Measured scan of single mutants.
Amino acid sequence: SAEDNLGPLPENWEMAYTENGEVYFIDHNTKTTSWLDPRCLNKQQK
């Protein structure tokens, strides 16, 4: 699965689903949400 390739979410991040079944990500560090997987963003920065 995609999660196996990317590994676990960063600390204090949570994956959630909208009512429509779309995946989004919650950053409890900054109390924000994102459509972008933080694991993908980390890979792009390196």
Rank of each mutant, 00 (worst) to 15 (best):
E22A: 07
L9E: 02
T32A: 07
H28K: 09
Q45D: 15
K31M: 14
R39Q: 02
W13G: 01
W13R: 02
C40Y: 09
N29G: 12
N29F: 07
I26V: 14
Y17D: 05
N20A: 13
N5R: 12
N29M: 07
W35I: 04
L36N: 07
T33K: 07
A2D: 06
K46D: 14
D27M: 00
N42K: 13
S34H: 06
I26P: 00
L36V: 13
K43M: 12
L6N: 10
P10G: 04
L41Y: 13
E11L: 10
P10E: 04
K31S: 08
D4P: 08
P38T: 01
N20Y: 08
E14D: 11
K43I: 14
C40W: 10
I26K: 05
T30A: 08
S34F: 00
L36G: 06
V23I: 13
D4G: 12
S34D: 00
S34A: 04
E19K: 13
T33W: 00
T33F: 01
P10M: 03
D37F: 03
H28F: 03
V23Q: 15
P38V: 01
P8M: 08
Y24R: 01
W35Y: 15
P10H: 01
L6M: 13
A16Q: 04
V23F: 05
K43C: 11
G21R: 12
C40K: 15
L6V: 09
N20V: 12
E14F: 03
S1A: 10
E22V: 05
P10A: 03
Y24C: 03
A16W: 03
Y24P: 01
E19C: 10
I26W: 03
Y17H: 13
G7T: 09
L6T: 13
E22K: 08
D27G: 00
N29I: 12
N42E: 15
Y17T: 15
Y24G: 01
T18N: 09
A16F: 03
Q44N: 15
D37G: 02
S34Q: 05
L6W: 07
A2V: 10
M15F: 05
G21T: 04
K46R: 10
L9P: 01
N29T: 13
T30R: 08
P38K: 01
H28Y: 05
P8E: 08
A2R: 10
H28T: 06
S1K: 15
E19Y: 06
S1N: 04
N12L: 07
H28G: 05
E11C: 08
P10V: 01
N5I: 09
D4S: 14
T30H: 10
P10K: 02
Y24S: 02
D37R: 05
E22W: 03
A16S: 11
N12W: 07
V23R: 15
P8T: 11
N5F: 13
D4Y: 04
D37K: 03
F25K: 00
V23A: 13
S1W: 06
T18P: 02
K43H: 14
E19A: 13
N29H: 11
E19I: 10
C40I: 15
D37Y: 02
K31E: 07
T30V: 05
C40M: 15
E14I: 04
P8H: 07
K46Y: 08
L41R: 12
T32H: 03
Q44T: 15
D37V: 02
N20F: 07
R39M: 02
L41N: 15
N29K: 13
H28D: 03
R39E: 02
I26G: 00
Y17K: 15
S1E: 05
T18W: 06
N29S: 11
A16H: 05
F25A: 01
Q45K: 15
T30F: 05
M15I: 09
C40A: 12
P38A: 01
D37E: 03
K31P: 01
P10W: 01
Q45M: 14
E14S: 09
M15S: 07
I26M: 12
V23Y: 12
K31L: 08
K31A: 07
T18M: 07
Y17C: 11
K31Q: 10
K31R: 13
P8A: 11
Q44K: 15
C40E: 15
Y17R: 15
D27W: 00
K46H: 15
T33P: 01
E19R: 10
Y17S: 14
E3G: 10
D4R: 10
D4W: 06
S1H: 04
A16C: 08
P38W: 00
K31W: 06
V23L: 15
E11Q: 11
N12Y: 07
Y24I: 03
T33L: 02
D37N: 04
G7S: 10
F25N: 00
G21S: 11
C40P: 15
N29L: 11
D37T: 02
R39F: 00
A16I: 05
L41I: 11
G7N: 11
C40L: 14
T32K: 02
W13V: 09
T18H: 06
Y24E: 01
K43S: 14
P38G: 00
L6H: 07
P8F: 04
L36A: 09
W13F: 11
M15Q: 14
D27I: 00
C40F: 13
Y17I: 11
N20S: 15
I26S: 02
E3L: 09
L6K: 14
D27A: 01
V23E: 14
L6A: 12
D37M: 01
N5P: 08
K46A: 07
H28P: 03
T18V: 04
Y24N: 01
L9I: 09
N5K: 12
M15W: 06
S1C: 09
N20M: 14
L36M: 11
K43F: 12
N5E: 10
L6F: 06
L41T: 15
P38H: 00
I26D: 01
D27N: 07
Y17W: 14
L36R: 09
E3V: 08
G7A: 09
T33H: 03
N29D: 12
L9A: 02
Y24D: 01
W35Q: 02
Y17F: 12
S34T: 14
N12A: 10
K43A: 11
T33E: 03
N5C: 13
I26E: 03
A16N: 06
F25P: 01
E11R: 14
K43D: 15
Q45G: 10
N20K: 15
L36T: 10
E22Y: 03
E3F: 11
L36W: 09
K46G: 13
I26C: 06
C40N: 13
N20L: 12
P38L: 00
A2Y: 10
E11V: 11
Y24K: 02
Q45Y: 12
S34E: 02
K43P: 14
Q45C: 13
E11I: 11
T30W: 04
T32E: 01
S1V: 04
E3K: 09
E22N: 03
P10T: 02
P10R: 02
Q44W: 09
L9F: 07
Y17Q: 12
K43T: 15
K46T: 13
P8Q: 10
V23K: 15
S1I: 07
E14A: 08
A2S: 13
D37Q: 03
K31I: 03
N42G: 14
A16R: 07
N5H: 09
D37W: 01
Q44M: 07
K31D: 03
D27H: 08
L6S: 11
A16T: 06
K31Y: 06
T32Y: 03
N5W: 06
A2Q: 14
L36P: 00
L9M: 11
K43V: 14
D37C: 01
E22T: 06
Q44S: 13
K43G: 13
G7F: 06
F25T: 02
H28W: 05
L9R: 02
E19G: 12
C40T: 14
F25E: 02
W35F: 14
R39L: 01
L41W: 14
F25Y: 15
L36F: 13
I26R: 06
W35A: 04
E3P: 07
H28I: 05
S34N: 02
T32M: 09
T30K: 08
T32C: 12
D4E: 13
T18R: 05
E19M: 13
G7K: 08
E11F: 13
A2W: 09
W13Q: 09
S34R: 02
L41Q: 14
S34C: 05
K43E: 14
P8W: 04
G7H: 08
Q44C: 09
P8C: 06
N42Y: 15
R39W: 02
A2L: 14
L9S: 01
E11A: 12
N12V: 02
N12P: 07
T30I: 04
R39H: 01
N5Q: 09
Y24F: 12
N5S: 14
E11W: 11
G21E: 12
V23H: 08
N20G: 13
Q45H: 12
G7P: 10
P38I: 01
S34Y: 00
K46P: 00
K46F: 09
D4Q: 11
K46L: 04
T32L: 10
D37S: 03
V23T: 12
T33C: 09
P38Q: 00
L6P: 10
N12E: 07
D27K: 00
D4V: 08
Y17N: 11
S1F: 15
P38F: 00
L6Y: 13
M15N: 02
T32R: 05
D27T: 02
N12T: 09
T32F: 05
E14V: 07
N5D: 10
N29Y: 07
Q45A: 12
G21A: 10
L6I: 09
Q44E: 15
P38N: 00
T33Y: 01
P10L: 03
G7Y: 07
T33A: 04
I26Q: 05
G7W: 06
L6G: 08
N5M: 08
N42F: 12
D27Y: 01
L9H: 01
W35K: 04
M15V: 12
K46C: 05
T30E: 06
H28R: 09
Y17L: 13
S34L: 00
K46S: 09
G7V: 09
Q44R: 15
K43R: 13
